[in-house]
Design a protein around this nucleic acid. Structure first.
Lengths: 220, 220
DNA sequence: TAGATTGTTAATCGATTAACAATC
DNA sequence: TAGATTGTTAATCGATTAACAATC
């Protein structure tokens, strides 16, 4: 963990406050570094990477230097090293188990997504109320009755829950998950969740997303 | 370089250059206004709405005033009027047909999503290379052989294509779509597309999204 | 009218880009 | 070493918030 840096008056140990804008860019850096690595590229300068990624070299270096110095003057960055450092920063070296609440089309699509596996995420269970879905398996992962949530979370190390259920049910299920110890909600329901401050929420609002395309088509 | 268009010397008629940050907030305003409308709320002040939405009243008014003045001093905003104005701005009063390329789990999940319908989007066709999928229907929408793309696009008014196919195929399919006249790509493949400047791209990078949750779990 | 609230300008804040000394 | 490129500070740019005159 990058120690150093100021701040941390109380219990915040590792990093200073990183802006959401920076955090959102990290996975993309990680993806490009992975591609470079697989292509056998050993080292890269901020300038060359920035050209490929269509960002400024300055921004890339500023972003990185929130977490420490990973390069070498006159040389650039070692791709393999930086890739793994980025993975570490993103928490991909820890086990990241995920449960999916709502085993409909979208929940099943997530469970089937191989990209998650290859980045260290594991879907370890789906949950639903529909008897027709309960008991089936998706890519080897079982669909459980949602009444099994309590015992399942007690018996498994899981911090992240994806919500792929109707918007009417999302808020109450989210609260229940938080009570059971879930720390992060990946919310696909088109509703905003009001949860305690320490619970992390990442919204994937598909309707909002498609609307921005519609806006641009009709206005530019 | 981000940022397109310099001034509106030529044909850009309606709106000045709106920042992406503003555009991204519009669908959320629209959603809240719709909720208010359905709840029978007739009028609302920027202050009250901002409290509900957890934004500043100032930001809401600034955002709106990019498009014109929709309120009345001393009164606030008429919910129904503003809702429809927002819909108009977002292009939701036009017909927005969508085709989906890749009829796997994610493509089917999108085709099944009722939220799109209720906001004026219509999925009018899915396309795949897999003979097992071709000919089936999802929520009444047929899955066509991808060889039918040309004729289908010629025969239908469609500007938006969703890409829910493997990342290896996404770039070439995107180019083909552009050649066929598609104006906007809703890209679910974990890859960046390089397309002509006038083509609109909205990425939904699910792996990037889940990684930001992982980051936050492990760093805050 | 008086009170309320917008539309809009001005001030602040934060994020991005530029520049360059440090250094490999 | 000399050249290259980082890490980091300074300058710029853009976005958010505050303030208030206009006005319903």
């Amino acid at each position: 963990m990058p120690d150093n840096n100021h701040g941390n008056h109380s219990d915040r140990i590792n990093v200073k406050n990183i802006s959401p804008a920076v955090i959102k860019r990290l996975p993309r850096y990680y993806r490009y570094l992975g591609d470079l690595l697989r292509n056998g590229v050993v080292r890269i300068s901020s300038n060359e990477l920035s050209n490929r990624m269509n960002v400024t070299a300055s921004q890339f270096r500023q972003d990185l230097n929130n977490f420490g110095g990973f390069g070498q003057q006159g040389y650039g960055y070692n791709v393999e090293f930086l890739y793994h450092e980025m993975g570490r920063i993103l928490g991909l070296e820890e086990k990241n188990n995920i449960i999916i609440i709502g085993a409909g089309n979208l929940g099943q699509a997530l469970a089937n997504n191989q990209e998650f596996d290859s980045n260290g995420f594991s879907i370890i269970g789906l949950f639903d109320v529909n008897p027709r879905l309960i008991g089936m398996t998706v890519r080897g992962v079982e669909v459980y009755d949602i009444d099994m949530l309590e015992s399942f979370i007690r018996d498994h190390e899981v911090k992240i829950a994806a919500l792929t259920l109707p918007k009417t049910k999302a808020p109450q299920v989210a609260e229940r998950l938080v009570e059971l110890g879930i720390r992060a909600i990946w919310n696909f329901a088109p509703v905003d969740l009001n949860l305690p401050e320490d619970i992390m929420i990442e919204n994937v609002h598909l309707t909002d997303s498609i609307m921005t395309l519609s806006y641009r088509i009709h206005n530019q």
